[in-house]
Simulated assay, not measured.
Amino acid sequence: MQAQHTYQKPGLGCWLKAVWNKLAEEQEWRGLASEDRHRIAQDMALSDGDLAALVRNGGGSAELEELLARRAAAGKARLAPELLRDMQHNCAFCAERPECRDWLATNESAGAPAFCPNREVLAPQG
């Protein structure tokens, strides 16, 4: 029996916890020396500005994880690891994340919405 994956909008308690965690992350980020932040960015193959934006805006991993879980539940082949890094980058900097969350909450299909920058990779093929 396969587990059903459905994205649900978080309630108030989840939202408050997320805000609290976000504030703690930002405080920790600001507490790092600039050379440490730069080294972390280099390790992740990101610019300093891109890494700062990720910390500020979050990484989009929940949305990508849900899309990948739906793909796997549909019996599609695993994606090559080298694709995942690009997909994570696309999700992290996607301006459509609120729309993506809404789409996930109202649509249970495998694949991705038309506005998704990873749509071609996630498309349920053969």
Rank of each mutant, 00 (worst) to 15 (best):
A110S: 10
L68Q: 01
G31V: 03
L104M: 05
R39H: 00
R71I: 13
C91N: 04
A72F: 15
K22E: 08
G11R: 05
P81S: 04
D102L: 12
R71A: 07
G60M: 03
M44H: 08
L122Q: 05
A52P: 11
A74K: 09
N21V: 00
S34M: 06
L83S: 11
M44T: 00
A18W: 13
E99C: 11
L84K: 00
L32H: 14
S34R: 13
G49V: 14
D43P: 02
L83W: 12
A92Y: 12
G111K: 09
R39N: 14
C100D: 01
R56T: 13
N118A: 11
L67T: 07
A41F: 02
C100R: 05
A105Y: 11
L46P: 09
Q27N: 14
C91E: 10
I40C: 09
Q8F: 04
L79E: 06
C14D: 08
W103E: 04
D36R: 04
A72I: 13
A74F: 10
L104G: 06
G49Y: 11
K17I: 03
A92D: 12
A110E: 05
R119Y: 06
E65L: 05
N118Q: 12
P10K: 02
R30G: 00
R119A: 11
M87V: 04
R39P: 10
F115I: 00
Y7R: 10
A74E: 15
L23N: 09
N107H: 14
G58E: 02
A3G: 13
A33G: 15
A74M: 10
K22S: 02
V121F: 15
E25T: 11
A41W: 12
L16Q: 07
N118P: 01
A69G: 07
A69K: 15
P81V: 03
L64C: 10
L16W: 01
